[in-house]
């Protein structure tokens, strides 16, 4: 972003990568897939790089309002400084915070989750699936992220994007509004679970297994981690867990 500004250019969108997308090895692959899609569609975009900082979502949901607001204030200063208007995020937690919680603190942006943006690109004809669909005949199930679905009511965009894959979309017993959490939200990702009789991601993996799907599509790097672990624990490594961006990048032959 700094470079573009120095050159006097303003990108169409800012790609908000998020902490997982920046640092987690698995999530970095999702980030790359999103970046490839943006490139292939001719979208002019920038990332903040070192100037990006945690939105504060995990701090806020763990009760640390002070830390959240410090992060928000810093990020808003950076975003407003660059005059950012349109943001796409690779993570529903960043998406929710930027979209719903920053406006009250002075950060007004049009924020889109990457599945929404990909849908837009496909609708506008800027992104086309390649011939010889790699997912033809596959059974895909979509795990709704809580902060894309319940928090923001977006159930359609990911499904419409998956529909372009020429695969069969099979819904889990609990989906959309009633989807079960992967267990990572509310800062659970960063702590051990309380005592119980099983892990949340293991319970959710049962829903996946019930569908007989070979691919679990996700829209959140944390869900991705949780579902990957769940499938591994169930010794079902034949089931692939991939973000929708990765599936699209493959189908559009961008890999």
């Amino acid at each position: 972003m700094a470079e573009m500004t120095a050159e006097g250019k303003a990108p169409e969108v800012l790609f908000w990568v998020g902490c997982a997308g920046s640092f987690d090895d698995r999530a970095k692959r999702i980030t790359k897939a999103i970046a490839k899609i943006l490139h292939a569609s001719g979208t002019s975009f920038a990332v903040l790089g070192q100037e990006e900082s945690c939105t504060g979502d995990p701090a806020r949901r763990a009760g640390n309002e002070f830390l959240f607001q410090m992060q928000a204030a810093m990020n808003i200063q950076v975003l407003n400084g660059y005059g950012i208007q349109r943001i796409i995020t690779g993570c529903p937690h960043c998406f929710n915070t930027l979209r719903n919680e920053y406006p009250e603190l002075g950060g007004q942006y049009e924020v889109m989750h990457h599945t929404q943006f990909i849908r837009e690109l496909i609708e506008q004809g800027k992104l086309r699936m390649a011939d010889g669909q790699p997912f033809k005949g596959k059974r895909i199930t979509f795990h709704d992220p809580c902060y894309l679905g319940r928090a923001n009511g977006e159930y359609l965009a990911p499904r419409e994007v998956i529909a372009k894959l020429d695969a069969e979309l099979i819904e889990m017993r609990r989906c959309k509004q009633n989807a079960m959490c992967c267990g990572a939200g509310g800062a659970q990702m960063f702590k051990d679970a309380e005592k119980g009789n099983r892990e949340v991601n293991v319970a959710r993996t049962d829903d996946v297994l019930e569908t007989g799907a070979n691919v679990v599509a996700t829209g959140c790097p944390f869900c991705n981690t949780m579902m990957t672990d769940g499938v591994k624990l169930a010794e079902r490594e034949d089931i692939v867990v991939k973000d929708i961006a990765e599936l699209i990048a493959e189908a559009a032959d961008l890999v």
Partner: peptide, 26 residues
């Protein structure tokens, strides 16, 4: 572990102990 997460966010701008300088390494 949450205290550690808070410290990381405060010091590194991320819930994990990675330096901000590595953000664009991907």
């Amino acid at each position: 572990s949450l205290t550690a997460m808070f410290n990381n966010v405060e010091n590194n701008g991320a819930p994990w102990a990675f330096p901000a300088a590595n953000r664009a390494n991907w």
